[in-house]
Amino acid sequence: MSRAMSTPSPTQPPPAGRRKRRSFDWSTAVIGTLVVSAGSAVLWRDGWAPFLSILTHDLTLLVDILPKVLAGCLIGAFVMMLLPREVVARWVGGESGFVGLVIATLVGTFLPGGPFSIYPITAALLTLGADVGTATTFIAAWSLLGYNRALVWELPFMGGDFTFWRVAVSLPLPILAGLFARLLWKVLINRDDPA
């Protein structure tokens, strides 16, 4: 958390040294416990055949998606290295109005990275003069349309049909969120400033 607090400045050095991620945290432990319990329950209730059939199906799925996950990780690493976050912040922060929302949607969609990098970038956007709507659109696009999350995580778990249609119905949402945020800002926080 202290990392996130120290990063709102756009002059932050490239994120090469930010990685200190554990591969096993408490939420993984919770899921692990649930999975082991569920697996044992299936074995105890239904016997070996259903247990193994589920295992085979899920292992096939795993083999299918691992190459994608590896590619996703490499893309993320290269983009973060080739594209310093102050460049991104300048792209998105420099435009206002509706164009700003469209650019924020595009950049948010194609920028890889997790919460440890996306919020500092957004904070940098705000200091560079982006308004609340642009920043809201950026975060919404990253979380709803981000190709990284969709391809690496959603596709294998949810299947192509679900992922495609979820993304399709979500396409207009980041811009709507930005417009809502601008409206709320105007009504609730600053009535005079056309945010």
Partner: peptide
Amino acid sequence: TGGLDFIHILPRIMLGVVGSGYLAA
């Protein structure tokens, strides 16, 4: 960096993918 990221998330993704079938059951 990308390779290390992959190794880091490998346990989670294995757990998630293999586990979701049992959780559903």
